[in-house]
């Protein structure tokens, strides 16, 4: 669908610069990222409830379905594809070990939320972990194993 309104923006995604790209004003950031082949960012509900589209924007986790691409002008974005350092490798290994990737749909959002939990350096109880991931739906209802994986990651890394 073509839009009559568009804006030109510049920002970076996973360290790569996107300079002066034209985006429709009505396009949300998740759709833009996916249109660029960054399909790790998933779209479930497009109303901020499911958490599958969570990304990091200027250092904090946000819902990319609730941010317009035009609002990303000047910002630095990291998607699940961009998290491949030693810490995130450990987290991913723990997710594998505990079978926390079941169908995989919620996984990008779960990993981004885990990243934010790990960055906060807090030692969280299982109840607190549940509260932190309360904004991420897993429709396989594999929460038990996801909490296991996050718990082990916190103990291992922080």
């Amino acid at each position: 669908m073509s839009a009559k309104n568009s804006v030109n923006i510049s920002f970076s995604v996973n360290g790569e610069n996107f300079d002066d790209v034209t985006v429709p004003t009505r396009q949300h950031l998740a759709d833009y990222l996916r249109s660029q082949g960054l399909t790790g960012t998933h779209l479930g509900c497009e109303q901020g409830a499911c958490g599958a589209c969570t990304i990091e924007m200027d250092g904090v986790a946000v819902r990319s379905c609730l941010v317009l691409a035009s609002q990303a002008n000047g910002s630095s974005i990291t998607t699940v594809e961009g998290f491949d350092d030693e810490v995130m490798q450990k987290v991913k290994n723990n997710f594998l070990k505990h079978n926390a990737f079941q169908c995989g749909f919620c996984s990008p959002g779960m990993l981004m939320t885990t990243k934010e939990i790990i960055s906060s350096k807090k030692k969280l109880s299982r109840d607190e972990i549940r509260s932190e991931i309360s904004g991420n739906y897993c429709r396989c209802t594999g929460y038990q194993s996801i909490v296991d994986a996050i718990e082990e990651s916190i103990n291992e890394i922080n």
Binding site: R26, G48, R63, L66, V67, L68, Q71
Partner: peptide, 24 residues
């Protein structure tokens, strides 16, 4: 007016509202 957009954008995505312009 668009500030954080966390209520406005869901409303737009669900087409509950159709403003002419968003003033960010």
């Amino acid at each position: 007016i668009l500030a954080g957009g966390q209520s406005l954008l869901p409303a737009l995505n669900m087409r509950l509202s159709s403003p002419s312009c968003l003033i960010d």
